[in-house]
């Protein structure tokens, strides 16, 4: 496996390209499931003992442990979906994510291997489309993901959705 190089020659190695391509595909497939409202699939992108947070840039800078959403384990992800479907009341809407290329997290200092976990960052913008067609830019930020290999394939073991703004319009019920 390649070691990250200052002159970016590591980018040219097939092993590096395989890792980053696989990570990017997982990120893209997961937002695809959310945007297509295949919510039963959403939790299957995560390990059983995953951690999922939605937080803000400000909260990270200030070291606040609480963001907007915190799930400890895939069961809590499923509970979020169940609550959205059966308990929460809101106006119908869906998202469309626009994601950037996926890159190794800054500070990565060894060759990326899924066996030990690969940390990647992916920028996103999300539009929110209401049932009447009204479309607003809902938020931007980046996914801070730790991806691991499991017998079932690649999964998110940690996902932190870092929103650029601390200001949320109305509510968040559909996960990012």
């Amino acid at each position: 496996m390649p070691i990250l190089t200052k002159d970016n020659t590591h980018l040219l190695t097939p092993a590096f390209q395989q890792v980053i391509t696989a990570a990017a595909a997982l990120v893209a497939d997961c937002v695809g499931a959310v945007d297509d409202e295949r919510f039963d699939e959403w939790s299957t992108f995560f390990t059983d003992d995953c951690r999922y947070d939605i937080t803000t840039r400000e909260a990270r800078q200030k070291g606040w442990p609480i963001g907007l959403m915190h799930c400890a384990g895939a069961a809590m992800l499923r509970d979020r979906i169940m609550s959205m479907r059966h308990a929460n009341i809101f106006e119908a809407h869906h998202y469309r994510h626009m994601v950037s290329a996926t890159r190794l997290a800054p500070g990565t200092d060894r060759a990326p291997e899924f066996a030990s976990g690969v940390r990647v960052h992916t920028n996103f913008g999300v539009t929110r489309i209401m049932a009447n067609g009204e479309t607003t830019f809902f938020g931007s930020g980046f996914f801070d993901d730790l991806i691991v290999a499991t017998p079932g394939g690649l999964r998110f073991h940690e996902r932190t959705v870092v929103l650029d703004s601390s200001q949320v319009d109305t509510l968040i019920v559909v996960p990012f």
Binding site: I54, I66, L68, M69, H70, C71, A72, R80, S83, A87, N88, I89, F90, E91, V168, T170, L171, I172, V173
Partner: peptide
């Protein structure tokens, strides 16, 4: 953990936003 109940993404209170 209980912070999940409140705020814009609060399982209990998100309705109040709309």
């Amino acid at each position: 953990l209980q912070s999940n109940l409140v705020g814009p993404a609060g399982l209990v209170s998100l309705e109040d936003g709309v």
